[in-house]
Simulated assay, not measured.
Amino acid sequence: MFKRLLYFFYYLKKSDWKLLGRFLGYASEKSGRSRPCIIFDSIFSVFRYNISFKDYYCFRFYDKPRSEREEWAGTGFMYEYQLRMNPKGSRELLENKVQFLNHYKLLVKRMFLHISGFSSDSVELNEMLRKSERLVLKGSRGQVGKEVEVISSGTYTPQKLLDYMKQHHYDLVEEFVIQHNDLNELSPSGLNTIRIITQTDKNEVIFLAARLRISVNSPVDNMGAGNIAAPVDLKTGIVTGPGVFSDITRDSASVHPVTGIKIEGFRIPHWERVLELAGTAAQNASGNRSVGWDIAVTEEGVELIEGNHNWCKLLWQLPVNRGLKADLMGFK
């Protein structure tokens, strides 16, 4: 109970109260329950189900019986689980994008450079500017789509790019990955990646889930940036449901909100190679046993983008509209 009390005060400090206020009004309107009743229930749920205030609304607990609430994996539970599966001493591989790219260089086809490794007369930088029409600038420790910017390489000289990166605190530049035409037709605004969640148990790689992350007028595809995610059948690579937002006030999308392309039934190209890549990455994760892998699909094949030790519980559960905590309970 003491640990959950600490979590409670953490949520009080870190929550986006403007967002939660909007969610509260929506939940009250949809459920017919008073706002004070929902607030009290959310506080109770933080302690009873080991969730955050935001989880309460995203999981729609205001409309769920207590028996069903037990099935959902919330923030507190996932923090503890992922800490056991991916100890702090092992996480640097996944937190540091430069270390990650070097470790998995055999699975990464795109060019990349760390700012410490080039100057304005760098041969590699000049080649990257010449070869790729667009470049991706990143902070090597940025997460959830933050510290990411896509630029047009034609407007930059090597020195101008170096100055721009220093000014905006970017320390990593990557060649832009051109996605498969099918995915580009679905949503051309950003790179739409597949999230494969793996669990290593007794040297066996288990595939827990697959989700298609779909950009909506955004250069990134993270749900937290206002984009959508859809469930994918692990056997076939076919999307099995509509795209969902983490914003509870927005309806699920059976077709893409901008392009109008149907989401359910969409077939992800090169599916067997997607799974093969995720499995290979998981086998070489250096002590990280439960990882969410982001994989891009191109015309030529597949490309490993990054791995996440703190993979998102919302991306995992919301697209299938059910709690999946039981899927993790057997792993020690």
Rank of each mutant, 00 (worst) to 15 (best):
W271G: 12
R110A: 09
V297S: 05
G139I: 10
Y81A: 14
F176H: 09
N96R: 06
F40P: 02
L24M: 10
K262A: 15
S28L: 13
S119V: 04
A27K: 11
E149F: 03
P36S: 03
V258Y: 00
M85K: 14
Y156A: 01
E204I: 14
K313H: 12
K88D: 08
V148E: 02
R267E: 12
Y49P: 02
E300Y: 10
Y10A: 08
A281K: 04
V144H: 07
L183F: 13
N184E: 11
Y56F: 15
N126V: 11
I43F: 15
Y26M: 08
L172K: 01
A285P: 14
I196P: 01
H270A: 07
G237M: 05
L20F: 06
T236R: 11
K105I: 15
M165A: 11
H114Q: 05
E185S: 03
S187L: 06
V148Y: 08
L314F: 15
K131T: 12
H103Q: 04
T198P: 10
Y62G: 04
N86W: 08
L183T: 10
G21Y: 05
K30M: 12
T198C: 05
E303H: 10
N184M: 06
E133I: 01
I51V: 14
A210I: 05
G154Q: 00
H114A: 15
D294K: 09
G241M: 04
T198E: 09
L191H: 02
L12W: 10
H256G: 07
Q167H: 11
P188V: 01
G323E: 02
N227D: 08
C312K: 02
D221H: 07
D55M: 11
V98C: 07
F176E: 02
T198V: 09
N102C: 05
L6G: 10
G301D: 09
S52I: 01
F331A: 08
F59D: 14
T249L: 13
K202T: 06
V244I: 13
N284M: 15
